[in-house]
Structures are given as structure tokens and as C-alpha cells.
């Protein structure tokens, strides 16, 4: 469980990091907190020949409000965002979700953007980004792109970030004062991978529901305000559509049942708060 050899580069700025990326192409990987990537290197599931450590770049350590969005730099740890004094006021869903990301120890090194880059199907932060319709800022020597959550994650553990680009920040919309949100996940042990994770946010039309841990990427559905049996029927259709599979942790049938039950609970709670 030791990684293969790699060159280690510690740039002092984003520009320097982009230079190295452009020169190394797909031989390089960007290292921030390393709470997913280093495990992959140890298991040799990833074998880059260059690691670009961006954790000490000061410009990437900011949390700020920009045009109605919370912008989180690529070197901001999950613990730092959780400790941001304005988080509960500006984005209560993130405040609910972050304590479920990994463990106390991994949140103190692991970054918010790093979890998005890893794009693990059961990870909570990609689910938060998709449900809240956030954005990811990506930079390369060719320029800067802002990707919507829907364009960002293209599949299981794959994103639209090109080999010569890196994530410099992600953005979560500031929550509307009227809106309500809820998160609930089921895992075998607190901090383990979610068997099913659900997030719900009230919208002008009804409720937006995000489901993680079942399909390859978070699945987002916008639902009108539903009552009683209509909620159950909609969730049942969704549970089947997600096409979950049996794995050693849970059966597909159990996952469907979790989507139905937890989905009903959080949709009802979020809708009642709205109406």
C-alpha cells in the first residue's frame, strides 16, 4: 500500500500550477487535501508521474460572497467551510451536509473542491452542489470556465475538467430566506459511504430533490407541490428509475425502500414549511 514514484511540485500561485499542468498534460494530478487522491495513490488506482500540491496557495484559501453565491477556494478544507460563521445563515443545507462528509479527521485536511473533483457517487458534496445548482470554476492556460453542476459531473468519478485544467473554486447559491432545506443519509456507520443520501430544497414551484448513492451521479428532480399518495407514487417511480444495483453493502431493493421512505419524510417536511 505504497504509492508509485512521482515528482512532487509545490507551486506558489495558480499561474505556476497551470504552467506545470500544461507541461505535464494527463501525467499530472492536482493534490489539495489528498483525502481521496492519496488513498487512490496508495492503492495504486491512480499513478500520476507528477503531483501538483496546491494546498498552500493563499489565493485558493478564501471563502467569500460573490454575486449571491458562496465561493469556496480549492484549498479550503471541509472543516474550514463548516466553521465559517455565516454558513448556517447563507446555506443551511451545506451546514447540515458537511458533518456527514468523511470524519472529523479527514474533514480537517480534505477540501470541498477536492471532494467534487473526486466525484464519488455516494459523496455528499457532489449531491449538495447538484441539488443547490451550484457552479465549479475551472482554469487552464487556455482560460477560465464556469461549469454548472449539471455540466461538471459527467459520470461516476468523472468530471468535465480537462487534463490541463484545475478547479480553482466552487460556488453554492446563497439560500433564499424563505426557502427550507433538509438532508438525510443512511450509512452503516457515521462517516461511512452513504447507502442512500437525499437532499431536498423548497423552490418557487415545489421541491427539488437530490438523490446520491444509488445512481452513478447525483440525480436531481424538480417536483411540484405534491400531497399524500402523489408523493408516494412519484418517489416509487424515481426509486425504480435510479436503477440501483445490489452490492455488498446493500441490496437494490433496500435502496429503493430508503429512497421511498426518506424521500417522503423530507419532501413533506420541506413542503409543509413552505406552504
Amino acid at each position: 500500500m505504497k504509492p508509485a514514484a512521482f515528482d512532487y511540485v509545490r507551486p506558489d500561485s495558480v499561474d505556476e500550477a497551470l504552467e506545470v499542468l500544461a507541461a505535464s498534460g494527463d501525467e499530472a494530478r492536482v493534490l489539495a487535501g489528498g483525502q481521496s487522491l492519496t488513498a487512490m495513490l496508495n492503492m495504486r488506482l491512480a499513478n500520476p508521474s507528477v503531483l501538483i500540491d496546491i494546498a498552500r496557495i493563499q489565493d485558493l484559501k478564501n471563502i467569500s460572497l460573490v454575486d449571491g453565491m458562496i465561493e469556496v477556494g480549492a484549498a479550503v478544507t471541509q472543516a474550514a467551510l463548516l466553521a465559517w460563521p455565516d454558513l448556517v445563515k447563507h446555506q443551511p443545507l451545506l451546514a447540515q451536509i458537511l458533518p456527514n462528509v468523511g470524519h472529523y479527521q479527514t474533514r480537517q485536511r480534505g477540501t470541498v473542491c477536492g471532494s467534487l473533483a473526486h466525484a464519488e457517487p455516494s459523496a455528499e458534496l457532489p449531491l449538495a452542489l447538484a441539488t443547490l445548482q451550484g457552479e465549479v470554476v475551472v482554469q487552464g492556460k487556455r482560460g477560465r470556465r464556469v461549469l454548472s453542476a449539471a455540466d461538471f459531473q459527467t459520470g461516476m468519478m468523472t468530471t468535465d475538467v480537462a487534463a490541463d485544467e484545475m478547479i480553482t473554486a466552487c460556488r453554492f447559491p446563497v439560500a433564499d430566506a424563505q426557502s427550507r432545506s433538509l438532508f438525510h443519509e443512511v450509512s452503516q456507520r457515521h462517516g461511512d459511504f452513504a447507502l442512500v443520501a437525499l437532499a431536498a430544497v423548497s423552490t418557487a414551484q415545489g421541491v427539488r430533490l437530490g438523490v446520491g448513492g444509488v445512481a452513478e451521479i447525483p440525480r436531481i428532480v424538480d417536483l411540484p407541490l405534491l400531497q399524500g399518495e402523489a408523493v408516494e407514487a412519484t418517489l416509487n417511480d424515481l426509486a425504480w428509475e435510479l436503477d440501483g444495483v445490489d452490492d455488498p453493502h446493500a441490496s437494490a431493493r433496500y435502496r429503493r425502500e430508503l429512497v421511498r421512505r426518506i424521500g417522503k419524510k423530507i419532501i413533506n417536511e420541506v413542503s409543509h414549511a413552505t406552504s
Binding site: 489528498g34 483525502q35 492519496t38 488513498a39 496508495n42 472543516a79 485536511r109
Partner: peptide
């Protein structure tokens, strides 16, 4: 000051 896993950190960091 922060508790972290040293198997997910390289010595050069």
C-alpha cells in the same frame, strides 16, 4: 493542531 491521518499525507507536505 488538527488531528489528521498520516497515511494520507506525504512526508514532503
Amino acid at each position: 493542531g488538527k488531528a489528521q491521518r498520516t497515511c494520507l499525507t506525504f512526508a514532503v507536505q
